[in-house]
């Protein structure tokens, strides 16, 4: 059953998701960071949907179970495209947007195919297993892609503070989620991983809202000041 912490996190998460959209609107970057804002809008709407299903059918109902996992897979795909949107920002001057889009679709298709191959032998609830597997794999792909993007930012000496902070916040989110999924596979009886997921669901909207409201688009930052290995 859900405890008071879960309700608080749920409410804070929805408030933070709304805050991102409001902050993006106020700083006039709704269109500029369209994929990020689209993800936040989808996350907010699906959170509301989860509340509705939860109130109507209950936490242990199959309806909530299916809605949760299917909406999670949908959100992970949206987040994957949000990450691709950040790639487009970093490489916009190189004029490789069409290649990036094609690569994103191919990578998503490849991840879906690998996920399918991993669950194809389980005859029972194969579709549910597939969406759970797809989410997990996309989180790990997200970690690798965000790491590569961070490497590209360092290499290209990208100085836009807003972009740097958006990428780093996403990196923290993806890696914490991938670690919590791995922990869940290693220690299925251990329930603390759930709170990591909760914390990260609050972290990402808060970090992005902060970036939109506090960091102006024209703010610049030397990347060598930020890299964890440099000083």
């Amino acid at each position: 059953m859900l405890g008071p912490i879960d309700y608080v996190v749920w409410s804070v998460c929805m408030l933070a998701q709304t805050a991102v959209l409001v902050c993006a609107f106020r700083s006039q970057c709704l269109r500029q960071y369209f994929t990020l804002n689209f993800y936040m809008l989808a996350a907010l709407l699906l959170s509301m949907g989860r509340v509705f299903v939860f109130v109507r059918y209950g936490y242990t109902s199959p309806q909530y179970f299916y809605f949760y996992y299917f909406s999670d897979a949908l959100l992970t795909i949206c987040l994957f495209f949000a990450l691709m949107g950040l790639y487009l920002h970093v490489f916009q001057e190189m004029g490789v947007s069409s290649y990036l889009r094609t690569a994103a679709i191919l990578l998503l298709g490849l991840t879906a195919w690998i996920s399918y191959q991993m669950v194809v032998t389980s005859s029972h609830k194969m579709l549910t297993h597939f969406v759970v597997e797809l989410s997990q794999n996309l989180y790990f792909v997200g970690v690798v892609l965000t790491y590569l993007l961070w490497g590209a930012i360092m290499k290209l000496r990208e100085t836009r503070t807003r972009l740097i902070q958006l990428v780093l916040a996403l990196g923290v989110y993806f890696s914490a989620f991938a670690a919590s999924y791995a922990l869940r596979n290693l220690y299925p009886e251990f329930v603390a991983w759930r709170y990591v997921a909760h914390l990260m669901q609050v972290w990402l909207p808060l970090a992005w809202a902060y970036t939109f409201i506090k960091i102006p688009e024209e703010a610049r930052l030397a990347t060598d000041r930020v890299a964890a290995t440099n000083r």
Binding site: F140, V143, T146, Y147, W150, T161, I164, Q165, L168, A169, G171, V172, F174, S175, A176, A178, A179, Y181, A182, L183, N185, L186, A207, L221, R225, V226, A227, A228
Partner: peptide, 22 residues
């Protein structure tokens, strides 16, 4: 899963340190 955990934790630390430094 153990390999993914190690890679993810290493990436998490690096991203968190870089975020704080930014």
């Amino acid at each position: 899963a153990a390999l993914i955990l190690v890679i993810s934790v290493a990436a998490l630390l690096q991203f968190f340190v870089s975020y704080c430094r930014s």
